[in-house]
């Protein structure tokens, strides 16, 4: 697949380096009712790189991830403060339509959640609602490309019209990834994408994540430190709603600066 140059838009007159900052969050606070879930988090996420969020359960890593495509909007009691910019545009600006944002920032969920439709329709759903294909042939092409990108094409090409719910767990999750990339997002958010999968399926998905790095900025939440070490280039450690430490994955795992990080990766908290 051809790598698309994402920074040729005329209105952004910035110099572009290969590891440009894609998402920058500043002083983000999230509340669910009275519960202060995210406390003053600032972070820069780079393009074409896998960034892992790790931390014990309930530390806010998933919450923060869901802020990046405004999925938290669908929860009635949630409230967010601070700014999150993608390509220097505040995504919580009044002018931003979350629908448009989510087309640009795709998401893969913890549990594989294929729609109760055919495999084809699952993948075609996003392109259809965003009007990406002019005709059936184009749509077919998009679907095939996405399924290939999701490394599942060979397994399903003969049964595109079978229901997506009939696939195995690992296949379902790769189908969901294919579904997410079909809308050609620029950022791909993954919320513990392997937690419901067996080791073999996990390995396949991890391999896929590594490939996706070439085209997208991938943010993955995981509770498995080994997985973070395997797939990510940068790692952020969350604890009790705070971003404790953020840096090169190698450095975090071998030489953490913060004592809490060290305690977590050595298994004393978590």
């Amino acid at each position: 697949m051809k790598v698309i140059d994402m920074y040729d838009a005329p209105h952004t007159g910035r110099t572009v380096t290969s590891n440009d900052i894609k998402i920058s969050a500043r002083n983000v606070n999230v509340f669910y009712g009275d519960n202060h879930a995210i406390k003053d988090v600032s972070v820069d996420i780079e393009d074409k790189m896998v960034t892992a969020f790790i931390g014990p359960s309930g530390c806010g890593k998933s919450t923060f991830l869901r802020c990046l495509n405004r999925m938290n909007d669908t929860i009635e009691s949630s409230r967010i403060e601070g700014t999150i910019c993608i390509d220097d545009e505040d995504i919580y600006d009044r002018r931003v339509d979350p629908v448009q944002l989510r087309a640009k920032v795709g998401m893969v969920f913890q549990k594989p959640n294929p729609f109760p439709k055919s495999i084809y329709d699952n993948v075609a759903y996003g392109p259809k609602i965003h009007g990406m294909a002019r005709n059936k042939a184009e749509l077919d092409e998009i679907v095939e490309k996405a399924l290939r990108r999701g490394a599942i094409w060979d397994e399903v090409k003969d049964r595109l019209h079978a229901p997506g719910t009939g696939l195995s767990g690992g296949q379902q999750q790769r189908l969901c990834i294919a579904r997410a990339v079909a809308t050609e997002p620029e950022v791909l958010l993954m919320d513990e994408p392997c937690s419901a999968l067996d080791p073999i399926a996990t390995a396949q998905v991890e391999e896929l994540i590594d490939e996706l790095r070439q085209d997208y900025s991938v943010v993955i939440v995981t509770h498995s430190m080994q997985q973070a070490a395997r797939v990510s280039q940068k790692t952020a450690f969350f604890h009790l709603g705070n971003l404790v430490e953020y840096g090169e994955t190698g450095k975090i795992f071998t030489n953490p600066e913060d004592s809490r990080t060290e305690a977590y990766i050595t298994g004393r908290i978590g």
Binding site: N69, M71, T74, L101, K111, I129
Partner: peptide
Amino acid sequence: SLRDGSYGLGATQSETIRKVILPA
């Protein structure tokens, strides 16, 4: 999870209802 999946792809609420929830 089906609603989340649809919103995550950038569908509006009515698109989610008409194309995912109602068929399901």
